[in-house]
Amino acid sequence: MKRFERILIKLIVIQFIVLLCSQLLIQQSAIKPYLSKVVQYEGVNKQTITEWLETFNQ
């Protein structure tokens, strides 16, 4: 049982680290256009950031 508990604790720690890394990645403004599917739906993936923001502000 101790072996199972150690494995479980390691998995929880790894999951927490992955969660933190993914949250930090999502918050990066340079990465957002690549993660957002709205960009594909709106058809603004070839525009500059200012044109992209103007499209969503309208």
Rank of each mutant, 00 (worst) to 15 (best):
I31A: 08
T48C: 05
N57V: 07
K37D: 15
Q28K: 07
L25P: 05
F16L: 11
Q23L: 09
T48N: 12
I14A: 01
L20K: 02
T55G: 01
N57K: 15
L35M: 06
L19Y: 14
K2R: 12
I9H: 00
V13R: 03
G43C: 05
I17D: 02
Q28T: 03
S22M: 12
T50G: 07
E5F: 01
F56Y: 06
T50F: 01
K10I: 15
L11I: 13
Q40L: 13
S29E: 11
E42V: 12
I49A: 15
L35E: 02
L25G: 13
R3A: 12
F4H: 09
T48D: 13
L53W: 07
F56K: 12
E54I: 11
V39I: 12
I9N: 01
Q40T: 14
I7R: 07
T48I: 06
L53Q: 09
L19W: 15
G43H: 03
Q58K: 09
L20G: 05
L35H: 01
I7P: 02
S36P: 02
T55A: 08
S22P: 12
L19N: 08
V18F: 15
V18A: 08
T55Q: 07
I14C: 01
L11H: 04
T50L: 11
N57H: 13
I49N: 11
R3F: 08
V39C: 11
L11M: 13
L20H: 07
I26M: 14
M1E: 14
Y41L: 11
Q40V: 13
